[in-house]
């Protein structure tokens, strides 16, 4: 287990190193500098600013400085907000993103599990059809369309929730709903397939032969066996939430990293883009690691093969 963990962490570090390197050199090819947005400056002022950003050194030196910074969680200074450290910018915006992202994930996965298992247990009935239609709709309608519709109808028309801004819990409801749609639909689809599979397996047949009733079969055998593989889609769902948050945060003016990412992209704020790229990758790697470990802890088959290795 310790060996496995060590190996995984090594690969995460390798991945982050590669990602940092690629983003660094990509950004070096970019047009635009911190000066793009500023009016005419004297050569000495330009030199001053270049020095401030470390742009006067040769590229390989800049690269080493950047890497050393990344190791210490220092991603340089933002071009857009010239006196803010990127790491501070990201840190201050992390909270709202984690809140709506986490809520969206939890709400989506839980409702998806319910919807998916209902569909499987009542396969080929109207309940199944409804569950399928709901998940197809939610997986197909783009998050930005859904967000605008939620904002207009539940916010502006019905006035149930604030249309934008950031404050207490009530401000998180609409963004959470918009973000929950994708994990809800994906989980429901996955769960339904998984459970239909399990319900037609030999061990469910044996459970029936034991005389276990329908409820007992679902509760004691089918649910656990179909729930375990759900862990494997948490990683991809996290990616969906990250993607969705970029527009959802924008539409609802949530001061999170998703909104910041889009803003930085539109203003060519390279240090922030680079920092956020690395942070996104790091978060995803951690989620993937946790889900893998969780899967190993929960599934007895993997748990044991892990021990014997």
């Amino acid at each position: 287990m310790v060996k496995y963990l060590g190996k995984r962490i090594f690969y995460i570090i390798l991945t982050l190193f590669i990602v940092s390197t690629i983003t660094f050199f990509l950004m070096k090819f970019m047009p635009g500098t911190p000066l793009t947005n500023q009016a005419k400056l004297t050569p000495s002022q330009i030199h001053q600013i270049y020095k401030q950003y470390g742009l006067d050194k040769p590229v390989w030196q800049q690269y080493l400085v950047y890497l050393a910074g990344v190791v210490h969680g220092n991603f340089g200074v933002s071009f857009q907000f010239s006196n803010q450290a990127v790491s501070y910018l990201i840190g201050s915006r992390m909270g709202p993103s984690l809140i709506i992202g986490g809520q969206g994930m939890i709400v989506g996965v839980l409702l998806g599990l319910v919807l998916g298992s209902l569909g499987a247990v009542k396969a080929n009935t109207w309940i199944d059809t409804t569950s399928t239609i709901v998940s197809i709709l939610l997986v197909s309608i783009p998050s930005f369309v859904l967000a605008v519709l939620l904002q207009y109808y539940l916010g502006l028309k019905l006035r149930w929730f604030p249309i934008a801004d950031w404050g207490g819990f009530i401000y998180t409801v609409l963004p959470t709903m918009a973000l929950a749609a994708s994990p809800l639909a994906e989980t429901a689809r996955f769960m339904r397939t998984e459970m239909v599979d399990v319900l037609s397996s030999d061990y469910i047949e044996l459970a029936k032969a034991k005389g276990l009733g329908k409820v007992g079969i679902i509760y004691h055998h089918a649910l656990r066996n179909s729930l375990i593989p759900i862990i494997t889609i948490i990683g991809p769902l996290t990616v969906n939430i990250m993607t969705g948050s970029m527009v959802v945060e924008n539409i609802f003016s949530v001061p999170g990293i998703g909104e910041q990412f889009v803003k930085s992209v539109l203003t060519n704020d390279y240090p922030t883009i680079m920092g956020l790229t690395i942070v996104y990758c790091a978060m995803l790697c951690v989620v993937l690691l946790i889900t893998d470990i969780l899967y190993g802890l929960i599934d007895p088959r993997i748990r044991l093969s892990g021990q014997s290795n």
């Binding site: 590669i18 990250m242 993607t243 883009i273 790697c285």
Partner: peptide, 17 residues
């Protein structure tokens, strides 16, 4: 490695370049 970078981030970086 590709899987641990969100697709959208890869796309955005490329488009910027």
């Amino acid at each position: 490695i590709m899987l641990s970078i969100p697709n959208l981030v890869v796309m955005v970086l490329l488009i910027l370049v």
